[in-house]
Design a protein around this nucleic acid. Structure first.
Lengths: 233, 233
DNA sequence: ACCGGACTTTGCTCTCGCGCAAATAGCGGC
DNA sequence: GCCGCTATTTGCGCGAGAGCAAAGTCCGGT
């Protein structure tokens, strides 16, 4: 892709340890794509035709149950891989990917995963590190869902979003893409009603400030207390 | 390991595609160990000194929360890898591993992971396939915990155990290692009381038969319906 | 500026499943 | 075979949070 400048993206942790010329070659095999917000990049169950690197924006990865309920598995931030079914030995995407905002994405044909992974070991190693980290995260989430109550889970989800993608404003830390109450509920296994009630209560106490698809964390430490060992008697 | 006969374990899916002589070399670097039941193989947070292959028995992988609650992440059956922190880019074990019954285990020093993974690509590929499958599983569990109710989750957990390790008896399919009500509750994010109540009810209906640390599935199809319908048996 | 749809708030009710407690039963060790 | 420990069962009450419903609010489009 002549439009891509390797020096702009060499800093991505994913390319740590990858030689500059390997990086150039890797990028030459990729295609750059733009998605306006709320566009589907791929669907669960679909043939895994490509794997992706998010260059700019935020992407929501969603699983849909047979009953039609949605669960948000994670948000992808820029610099992260997604849709790497091939690296996991899958031939179908296990989830949907949807742009939460306008996005720029690099895509490689899935068919070249094998040759790429053989040719660029540093890249491959970083990829598997990512996979390892995600396995960790997923298991953390299992533990959280199995042991913590809704209030803690919601507090934790908001904290994570704020840490992952927070932007400083004069009010506090703003999650810099649109997140609805429903989204939060789909991240935490609850309902939008409960999330709304919690946010209202927290706003009363000055812990957060929230609006339509917008959440600002004012007192992160108080949220952290709610997320962690909140002992009630 | 002169005691190990490569031909006995060449059939393990993990070694699919690995040349016989590579397999022999791989095994020569491993150490065989025995654990009587309820022995700790490694602990969460401990330095990842080794990675393991279970040759015989069943192993419980458990995470412990800061509050001391336990969550059973998975059971390992014979032929499966575990403790592969190194392959995930971790330097500490993220969970405990405990033998559920008497076990035979192969262990490799963690330090050789890198060289092994470079030298035996087929083995490495299979390992990462395993990791991918586990990521899948973990995310399935997240979805399950987030959307299904306790009865479905418990039914599903028991079905999975029966499929994974079930032994045919005249009564039905017996889970062939000791599982307590508490264990089931720690797999499903509920309490031993609720599990006990469910098993009692199911026993009334002739769906299962259970005793002390013992569960026999009699009518798998009925359990599958309770679990939510999309389960194979 | 207005309209309509999407998002949010909030009240009320109801129930699933947890927490506590006490009784019972089965297994292993001596 | 007996004892003690551990696992299991079961009753009861309660509370977190889901489900339902209706009102309110904000935003984008024409």
């Amino acid at each position: 892709m002549s439009l891509l400048d390797a020096s702009l993206i060499a800093d991505i942790p994913l390319f740590q340890g990858v030689a500059r010329q390997d990086l150039v070659e890797l990028l030459s095999k990729a295609k750059s794509e733009r998605y306006v917000k709320e566009r589907t990049i791929f669907n669960q169950g679909e043939d895994a035709h490509s794997f992706f690197l998010l260059l700019d924006g935020h992407i929501r990865v969603v699983r849909i149950t047979p009953e039609g309920e949605q669960v948000i598995v994670r948000y992808i931030s820029s610099g992260e891989l997604f849709g790497i079914a091939h690296a996991l030995g899958l031939d179908k995407y296990p989830a949907n990917a949807v742009s939460a905002v306008d996005c720029v994405v690099l895509s490689w044909p899935g068919a070249i995963w094998k040759s790429v992974s053989e040719k660029f070991p540093a890249f491959t190693a970083n990829t598997y590190k990512t996979v390892g980290a995600r396995l960790q995260e997923a298991q953390d989430k299992v533990v959280e869902l199995a042991t913590e109550r809704v209030e803690q889970r919601v507090a934790n989800a908001i904290l994570k979003l704020a840490n992952q993608t927070g932007k400083k404003t004069e009010d506090g830390i703003l999650i810099d893409f649109p997140v609805s109450r429903q989204d939060i509920s789909e991240m935490t296994g609850t309902t939008l009603h409960t999330v709304s009630r919690l946010l209202s209560a927290w706003e009363q106490e000055g812990i957060v400030k929230s609006g339509r698809k917008k959440i600002t964390v004012i007192e992160g430490h108080k949220l952290a207390v709610l997320a962690g060992g909140d002992q009630r008697s």
